[in-house]
Amino acid sequence: MAGFVREFTKGIVISNPIFILALGLCPALAVSNTIDNALGMSVGVIFVLLGANIIISLIRKSVPNIVRIPTFVVIIASFVTIVSLVFQAYVPALHESLGIYLPLIAVNCIILGRAEAFASKNPVTASIADALGISVGFALALLLIAFLREILGTGGLEVAGTSLFTLPVLSEHPLALFVLSPGAFLVIGLLLALFRRIGAIKHE
């Protein structure tokens, strides 16, 4: 159990995929414009990474070395297809606003990276802990960026169609830059610098 907790917390803090490893940046920037998109993407990533880590860990002893990577890729892509079909069936609006970034989970460096570096070498329980830790770490980072971008860019916060709050001045004069693509680079760059400044991340 202690091992499980250690693997889990590792992904959230020590090797946070976005802020420390700088992996999976493409979705982190593209779908962090609203909290809704960030939540949808997080659910997708958690499901795919968990599923892929479990299956890969189960078959890790039987897979021939030479076709290891193609096998992993096929497994990951299948989980992504499942997520895509389920989203399309039950949350079509979210499926549409995530666009090509949902299928692109299949080539997200985080997922193949965890499959290759962890699940292919470790038993199932450890792989589950690793998948949960890494994907929750990813989700938290994504939500933090989306939170800042949506508040600054629209002057309020809206989750699943219900408005949580609107700020007085900002909602009338929102800083549209932040919901646009350059704003994504700006927010993530400043957050990274801030984390380094307060010592949360060590310099390389």
């Binding site: 021939p64 076709v67 096998t71 096929v74 299948s78």
Partner: peptide, 15 residues
């Protein structure tokens, strides 16, 4: 290896 990956693809396609 070829058989293995074929099997993996067949199973995933079915699923």
């Amino acid at each position: 290896p070829v058989l293995y990956i074929t099997l993996v693809v067949l199973i995933t396609v079915t699923l």
